[in-house]
Write a protein that binds this DNA or RNA. Structure first.
Length: 507
RNA sequence: CGGGGUGUAGCUCAGCCUGGUAGAGCGCUGGCUUUGGGAGCCAGAUGUCGCAGGUUCGAAUCCUGUCGCCCCGACCA
């Protein structure tokens, strides 16, 4: 029974990162593939994470004056055709509804019937249909700014899908706002990015690099796309969310106009911004280890699980009683915006099996309590951010007085660890040779984990972006906000550049 | 849509080449023994072998067609 080197998840991250990711999700019961191609079934433990994300972000949105709305799933094709670049960007991945009923077919079974006059597009995003409403709602500068958000599902018919990271249907929020001036709309775009970055760093403990996208990576139809990028444990980049300054493009497409103070009719300035269930995938890939999911305490559905050790009928009752009272005390402790959530697992399973179940589910803290602990008024505490072997006894009193601090320390620890990893694999590169070497695996047949973020100078041309994408599958992930002005030479062409940008392979 | 692969128990797969009517491991159910690091033994349940034709006395196995899925490319939160 040598479990010393055995990991709960196989393969390990080093052996096969993509497969490891799938196995972590499966072992943690977050989600599974649905019978419908490219779609997922989100299971209770996974959906609870999404609910916690929703609750946190929704509060931030409301605090900054946004109101929730709901628009239809279906968008008339004619609406969608209004903005040319938008069409270019999304047309290839739209699901289209063309019929309104089913009839018995001659081959048996059912066949679509009742063809619609105008096909309906299942929304890949809602700019166009919300624009139509904004045009009616907005008449005067007094109607501005108009600040809305909706929680919804969208469909983008993807070729290749992976649970949470890319699915044909996914859940998200999309904010849509309209403003009287360019400055105000730009300020909104930036504010929402700040809210996202703050959320992701503080709640999900994922360090990110905020900035803006290059023209080729922008949202179809946007004038500016702000974004934040995070580094996964395979050193690839994952775009977390985006905030778009749409200029007056969509206002012109949907005819969103208003009368300004001087009685002049003007086009409004609009923004849109969103984050998706992809955040769950990011969290899995940033924090989890070879024993399964690791959840930051603030976003975990429950922070603590109590595992009573029920040896015999004699002691069973007193152990359970002790655990119940401990649970009640813990649930009275303030944590985050509410109170601690505590699970109690009294299933009739062997202790080891039960413990590993919760380790794989990523619960931040687990308490093993048996008759010995009850007698000494103590408990055995284990933390998910440490080796399972390291767990040890604490007195009940000591534990209760430090538990919240311990969880906060864990939250911060996960962030610090991820930040250190990101910094360790972020390098400044100044020659083309070094750049190509950085992004080329040693073993081409079975690429090892390699590369990372390269901070390099860029001449600003789309040709260079295309070349490195073709040669190395590397893209410019973000032009960082905090990157200091620095004279340099484009790492590919040698042409002058004023700032370093982040190059990486991406999800 | 191009190239490759695959479909057998809830899951992972063997069996196919060389036809004889279905297997393993895991999981599940029950019993006994265990229990502070993923238990052991025993007993059980579970399948129109993706679908439709064909060859044959007989097809999971051979042939034809068809559908689904997976991997690699182009596209993407």
């Amino acid at each position: 029974m040598s479990k010393k080197n055995k990991t709960a998840i196989s393969p390990t991250r080093d052996e096969n990162y993509p497969e490891w990711y799938q196995q972590v999700i499966r072992a943690a019961d977050l989600a599974e593939n649905a019978p419908v191609r490219g779609c997922m079934i989100i299971k209770p433990w996974g959906y609870a994470l999404w609910e916690n994300m929703q609750a946190s972000l929704d509060k931030d949105f409301k605090k900054t004056g946004h109101k929730n709305v709901y628009f239809p799933l279906f968008i008339p094709k004619s609406y969608f055709e209004k903005e040319a670049k938008h069409v270019d960007g999304f047309a290839k991945e739209c699901a289209v509804v063309t019929h309104s009923r089913l009839e018995a077919s001659s081959e048996g079974g059912l066949a679509p019937a009742g063809e619609l006059d105008e096909p309906l597009i299942v929304r890949p995003t809602s700019e166009t249909i919300i624009g139509e409403a904004f045009a009616r709602w907005i008449q005067s500068y007094r109607d501005l700014p108009l600040l809305t958000n909706q929680w919804a599902n969208v469909v983008r018919w993807e070729m290749r899908t992976r649970l949470f990271l890319r699915t044909s249907e996914f859940l998200w929020q999309e904010g849509h706002t309209a403003h009287a001036t360019e400055e105000e709309a730009m300020a909104e775009t930036k504010q929402m990015l700040d809210i996202y970055v703050n959320f992701v760093e503080n709640m999900l403990a994922i360090p990110v690099i905020p900035g803006r996208k290059t023209e080729s990576e922008r949202f179809p139809g946007a004038e500016e796309t702000l974004t934040f990028e995070a580094m996964m444990q395979d050193r690839k980049a994952l775009q977390g969310g985006t905030s778009h300054f749409l200029g007056q493009k969509f206002a012109k497409a949907s005819d969103i106009t208003f009368m300004d103070k001087d009685g002049q009719e003007q086009y409004a300035w609009t923004t849109s911004w969103g984050v998706t269930t992809r955040m769950i995938g990011a969290m899995v890939m940033v924090h989890s280890d070879d024993n399964g999911l690791v959840l930051p305490p603030r976003i975990a559905p429950s922070q603590i699980v109590i595992l009573p050790i029920l040896k015999d009928d004699e002691t069973k009752e007193k152990v359970l009683e002790y655990c119940e009272s401990l649970k009640a005390e813990l649930e009275n402790k303030a944590f985050g915006d509410g109170f601690l959530n505590v699970e109690m697992d009294t299933r009739d399973l062997r202790g080891g099996e039960k413990l590993w179940h919760w380790i794989k589910h990523g619960i931040p803290m687990f308490l093993e309590i048996g008759p010995r602990d009850v007698d000494s008024n103590a408990l055995v505490v284990g933390r998910r951010d440490k080796d399972p072997k390291e767990r040890g006894p604490q007195s009940r009193e000591e534990f209760l007085s430090t538990v919240v601090d311990q969880l906060e320390e864990m939250q911060q620890g996960l962030f610090d660890k991820a930040k250190a990893f990101q910094q360790e694999h972020t390098v400044r590169i100044d020659t083309k040779e070094e750049f190509y070497k950085f992004f080329t695996p040693k073993n081409k047949e079975k690429p090892e984990i390699h590369g990372g973020f390269a901070l390099a100078h860029w001449n600003g041309s789309a040709e260079v972006e295309e070349q490195i994408k073709k040669d190395l599958k590397v893209t410019i992930r973000v032009i960082p906000n905090n990157s200091e002005a620095e004279e340099g030479k484009c790492v590919i062409t040698g042409e002058p550049s004023k700032q370093r940008v982040v190059f990486a392979k991406a999800y």
